[in-house]
Computed example of a mutant assay.
Amino acid sequence: MDTASRPAPGELAFRDAAPHDVDDLVALIESAYRGDSSRTGWTTEADILAGQRIDPDGVLEVIDNPDGTLLAVEQDGRLVACCQLERRGEHAYFGMFAVRPELQGSGLGKTIIARAEHTAREQWGAREMQMTVISVREDLIAWYERRGYRRTGTMTPFPYGDERFGVPQRPDLEFELLVKPLG
């Protein structure tokens, strides 16, 4: 790699994830949402879901999707975050967003979502970004609302009984669609 193209120390580097990244991505996503390590950050789901958040096959499926990408975000050569972007006609889907728990609250998430929105708008011509969030995650939904997303009231049932997505700790889980025009 040419030294002119290397990020400066502390600068973020964005790249498409590759199959060799799967184990590191699973570990990152799990650390941000499940188990005791997730409690270091504020995005934990440990009180509402036990078990796994994602498995290697799920990550590989996103990486291999020809209509999208899984962005790997590195800082000083270390994986610090990731997010899924998928082209869906005139809108894009944003998902699988994870930031290392110890870096949450540092502004990193704002930077990454802004980059994802820019990519969807400029590279794909997307007019809107969509995502689904577990409806009881009020703090997380409020964070997205501060970034211009709005609640739609459109709900999708949580896949109870499919432990690939976790083991629900309460009976009222569902996903709400959030949207943001990309201008």
Results as ranks from 00 to 15, higher is better:
97 F>P: 00
13 A>E: 15
107 G>K: 04
71 L>T: 13
3 T>V: 10
124 W>T: 05
26 V>Q: 11
50 A>N: 12
77 G>L: 04
27 A>R: 11
102 E>H: 14
85 L>D: 00
169 Q>W: 09
78 R>V: 14
85 L>V: 10
4 A>K: 09
149 Y>M: 10
52 Q>D: 11
67 D>Q: 12
69 T>H: 12
58 G>P: 03
176 E>L: 02
27 A>D: 11
136 V>L: 08
147 R>S: 05
174 E>Q: 13
10 G>P: 00
85 L>A: 06
113 I>T: 13
45 E>T: 06
114 A>F: 00
127 R>Q: 11
142 A>H: 13
43 T>H: 08
124 W>Q: 02
151 R>Y: 03
132 T>P: 00
62 V>W: 00
124 W>P: 00
136 V>H: 05
21 D>N: 09
23 D>T: 09
78 R>N: 05
57 D>H: 07
57 D>R: 01
36 D>I: 07
18 A>Q: 15
116 A>D: 04
37 S>L: 09
171 P>H: 12
160 Y>A: 10
110 K>R: 14
102 E>V: 02
93 Y>M: 08
22 V>C: 04
181 P>H: 12
177 L>N: 03
66 P>A: 12
137 R>Y: 01
46 A>K: 08
1 M>F: 14
107 G>Q: 07
29 I>L: 13
155 M>A: 12
47 D>M: 07
37 S>F: 00
7 P>Y: 08
52 Q>I: 08
149 Y>L: 06
158 F>S: 06
82 C>K: 01
44 T>K: 01
146 R>D: 15
114 A>H: 05
181 P>V: 05
51 G>V: 06
146 R>Q: 14
125 G>N: 07
170 R>C: 03
74 E>A: 10
68 G>W: 03
85 L>T: 04
143 W>A: 08
21 D>A: 07
96 M>G: 00
138 E>M: 01
64 D>V: 01
4 A>D: 14
20 H>L: 11
110 K>T: 14
123 Q>C: 03
37 S>D: 12
172 D>I: 07
41 G>Q: 09
109 G>Q: 02
80 V>K: 02
85 L>S: 03
88 R>N: 08
128 E>G: 00
102 E>S: 15
76 D>C: 04
42 W>Y: 05
161 G>E: 14
140 L>A: 11
120 A>T: 07
102 E>A: 12
133 V>H: 06
106 S>F: 08
87 R>C: 11
110 K>A: 15
5 S>K: 09
65 N>C: 14
32 A>K: 05
177 L>Q: 12
91 H>W: 14
33 Y>S: 02
82 C>R: 02
111 T>Y: 00
91 H>E: 13
23 D>H: 06
117 E>M: 15
27 A>W: 03
158 F>H: 07
131 M>N: 04
116 A>K: 00
14 F>G: 01
82 C>E: 09
137 R>V: 02
157 P>W: 06
141 I>W: 02
138 E>V: 06
51 G>A: 12
120 A>I: 03
34 R>C: 01
41 G>I: 10
68 G>M: 05
131 M>W: 00
178 L>S: 10
105 G>S: 07
173 L>W: 01
40 T>G: 03
116 A>F: 15
86 E>L: 13
39 R>M: 11
